[in-house]
Design a protein around this nucleic acid. Structure first.
Length: 267
DNA sequence: CGGGCGTCCTGTTCGC
DNA sequence: TGCGAACAGGACGCCC
């Protein structure tokens, strides 16, 4: 479940290994479910130089000069410079130095789209402000939350409101802010919005420092896992004592997704 | 237009 | 022990 911190670490891994290099060969397999119907054939990347990789929320946007490449890891997508081709490898990009960047995605929830640089990308442009950017702040959250009757946990998962927060960090952020996940967004005070933004940014920045959260699928481009799973306070910790008050952590389901929280600390 | 739910997919976990 | 059912999750699209 790569969220903002994991995608940022992948971005850094790709940039560190491959920036400025030219793609000399493209191999793809079984990309039918992953590739946008409007995408150019991925072979068109051959000959392009990787000039920059931007991230907004959970999306990566590759600057390939005349072309651009938008990619999302879904929940099991992995970009690796290390490793070998497996049965779930969907794309291999060979670079001028001989290095090979592979995309594997067993559950095929990922997304990729290659277009000309001038093309508009609705998935990218319709995203809310990136969750660790200055554009997402207490004033922004309060202004938008007051218009929504959605529970705050569900609101934070809406990428059109704020980009990058997924199931793990939504639970962790609300725990850090002492706000109950079922609270209706429009009932939040300005101070609570401030606490949520502060807690969300703190937990995601710390996760980036720990190279992300690896439960099973997520891997860095070097094939290694992150270590933030060792620092989670509530996510997937049903029944364990709350780090603050020692009451057992609880689990609830909102719109089909699990939320973890402390009923005593979060109001 | 907001909000709720079904859909895609497959590895893992659960229950009989 | 083994097998099939249920489950998980991001984002879109459909529906009211």
């Amino acid at each position: 479940m790569p969220e903002l911190p994991e995608v940022e670490c992948v971005r850094q891994g790709i940039v560190d290994a491959l920036l400025g290099q030219r793609i000399v060969k493209v191999w793809s397999h079984g990309t039918g479910n992953l590739l946008d119907p409007n995408s150019l054939p991925l072979r068109r990347m051959e000959g392009c130089e990787l000039r920059a990789v931007a991230r907004r929320g959970k999306y990566l946007l590759w600057n390939l000069g005349d072309l651009q490449f938008l990619a999302h890891l879904g929940m099991s997508g992995v970009w690796q410079v290390a490793g070998e081709r497996t049965k779930h490898t969907h794309l291999e990009l060979t670079f001028s130095t001989g290095q090979c960047l592979r995309y594997t995605d067993p559950r095929q929830f990922g997304y990729m789209c290659l277009t000309t640089a001038a093309e508009t990308l609705p998935r990218w442009e319709q995203l809310g402000p990136d969750a660790i950017s200055a554009q997402w702040n207490a004033a922004h959250l309060f202004a938008h939350a007051t218009r929504s009757r959605t529970p705050i946990k569900v609101f934070l998962l809406d990428q059109h409101q704020v980009a990058g927060i997924g199931n793990i960090y939504a639970s962790e952020a609300l725990f850090g802010a002492h706000v109950h996940p079922a609270r209706i967004a429009q009932s939040l005070t300005q101070l609570e919005c401030q606490h949520i933004v502060k807690a969300a940014k703190a937990v995601m920045r710390m996760s980036i420092r720990k190279r992300g959260t690896t439960f099973s699928d997520y891997r860095l481009t070097n094939g290694k896992g992150g270590s933030f799973q060792g620092f989670l306070k509530v996510f997937q910790k049903v029944g364990t004592p709350c780090p603050n008050c020692h009451a057992p952590i609880q689990q609830m389901v909102q719109v089909g997704r699990s939320t973890f929280f402390c009923a005593k600390c979060q109001k």
